[in-house]
Amino acid sequence: MPAISRDEVAHLARLARIDLSDDELNHLAPQLDVILQSVAQVSEVAAQDIPPTSHPLPLTNVFRQDEIRPCLSAEEALAGAPIVDGAQAVEDERFRVPRILGEEA
């Protein structure tokens, strides 16, 4: 029984916004299956009463003062905008992005 099917891999790719080709899917699905079967070893460990560790150090309550710090200028913020047709995807001091599905005007 594989841990993960080709369809599930395709679903994950959509979830992760990666437009995998069919060839890649065929190649990746068995690899992911092998990896997942291998990492599933973690379930061998009896750990019902063991608390999970999300942070390696037991720090708590690290806060910042509510004090204003210098921002980037709009020019600096937009300087790295992707290039589309030889020009930066910027308009009206904003990032220009492709149409957003389901967006309300």
Partner: peptide, 20 residues
């Protein structure tokens, strides 16, 4: 959207498609 590579932005594809 904000930096780095952008592929497939032909003015027709959606943001989601361009991301993928």
């Amino acid at each position: 959207m904000r930096y780095g590579l952008r592929v497939g932005d032909d003015g027709i594809r959606s943001a989601e498609e361009v991301m993928s």
